[in-house]
């Protein structure tokens, strides 16, 4: 058979795609009714583990958009063992992340020396009012429940993990 002109072969591609969509289903998901799960490392929202945070301000300083607002005061805590010195600890007053400014770069999570910030793949937190996008520390602590376990690494990776 002589070579089919490209025009006809092109028609075949679209027809084949149509048949494939009708028989095997489309490549799209009907969003509100079905949802795709994002991968584990997906950067959805930042969660705060309040007990670990010492308000060292490293995250606030390293944010490119300056969207983390931290206020803390010093408090006295009982000594670690009997007869020891009274310790000074930082108590968090305010830890807000403004998600209308956040560019989801992850520098704050990476830079935190005390493992107080974690990524969570939750993404459905849009609000009708832009000021509701400022998540305070209670809301950020609630996100902790959605933080997944870190995924296993590929073969050949170094066993030492953060």
């Amino acid at each position: 058979m002589a070579k089919l002109p490209g025009l006809i072969k092109g028609l075949g591609v679209t027809f084949g795609t149509m048949v494939r969509t009708i028989t095997k289903g489309a490549n799209t998901v009907q969003y509100p009714h079905e949802k795709e799960t994002p991968p584990i490392r997906a950067r959805g929202v930042i969660a705060l583990h309040q007990d670990n945070c010492t308000s060292c301000m490293l995250c606030s300083r390293s944010c490119p958009d300056w969207c983390i607002y931290i206020e803390a005061h010093k408090d006295l805590a009982p000594p670690r063992r009997e007869g020891g010195k009274v310790r000074q600890v930082n108590k968090l007053d305010r830890f807000d992340i403004d998600y209308s400014l956040c560019m989801y770069c992850g520098i704050c999570v990476e830079v935190c020396p005390f493992d107080a910030l974690f990524w969570s793949p939750e993404y459905e937190y849009s609000e009708p009012n832009i000021s509701d996008l400022l998540h305070d520390k209670t809301k950020l602590s609630e996100w902790m429940e959605t933080v997944p376990e870190a995924p296993a690494l590929e073969v050949g990776a170094d066993k030492k993990k953060k």
């Binding site: 679209t14 027809f15 795609t17 149509m18 494939r20 969509t21 009708i22 489309a26 490549n27 799209t28 009907q30």
Partner: peptide
């Protein structure tokens, strides 16, 4: 519908 099927999607549902 037909255009959507040719483009691997379902069209208005």
């Amino acid at each position: 519908k037909m255009m959507s099927f040719m483009q691997s999607r379902l069209g208005p549902m």
